[in-house]
Design a protein around this nucleic acid. Structure first.
Lengths: 124, 124
DNA sequence: CAGCATCCGCCGCGATACTG
DNA sequence: CAGTATCGCGGCGGATGCTG
């Protein structure tokens, strides 16, 4: 509840809540998870196999966060043992293009970044 | 393109280095900083005033990181006292549209997310 | 003006063990 | 199968104080 600063205000109005939302949604594992779920709904362990390096604690945390923010839906089937399926929501879908764009950006510019790093590291 | 993994491979090939790059570039303050510098080159303290909540340690760290990744250029003028100007690089400019899109996404969907959070928090 | 140094708390993330 | 519980660490970020 940022009373708008009397003077400057941010460039295009990025606020704390904006940043917070992006933090929640762009955290370490969320991108992969959403990518996976955009392709098809998946069970918990399917996601683990699809993203082999994630620990299940982190995966759980990412899913909970995404669920809380309305990006992912958790569907429980009370069989025995229970089955849980995660699927992307309509709200989550609105991020898909952006995620794809981000990934494309990284692949397109990885080389340039790499060179910049070498230059920087070399000079110091 | 990096050799596709023999088995699963990620959905669209997000790798550790991709994630790492995004982490460097989308960290807590980088977005605001790049936003500011996309508008115009700015001095260190100008940035501080433009983003009043950032501490200078964090601002320094963000600038260093952005510089190392080739997104921002640090121009030192050896007057007395010295002046340092930061400006966006060509590589950095390639991110501008994405940043804008991310910000637009947050403003457009903040309400939906808010409702999702209330629903989620209410149920537990 | 543009930082660096230090201390310190928080939490993201991993590793490991256990459960309905 | 789909988690929860606990421990521990490393690193980010804030607060404060000092400097060429």
């Amino acid at each position: 509840m940022q009373e708008t600063a009397p003077f400057a205000s941010y460039a295009s109005g990025i606020t704390a809540s904006h940043r917070e939302l992006l933090d929640q949604v762009l955290d370490k594992w969320s991108l992969q998870v959403m990518e996976e779920l955009c392709e098809q709904p998946q069970r918990f362990n399917e996601l683990r196999r699809a993203i082999p390096v994630v620990t299940q604690k982190s995966l759980t945390a990412a899913l909970r966060r995404l669920e809380r923010n309305g990006m992912v839906e958790r569907v429980v089937t009370s069989t025995r043992p229970i089955a849980v399926e995660y699927r992307i929501t309509a709200l989550g879908k609105t991020l898909q293009d952006l995620i794809d764009a981000l990934l494309r950006w990284t692949t397109d510019n990885m080389d340039g970044v790499e060179r910049a790093r070498e230059r920087y590291d070399g000079e110091n």
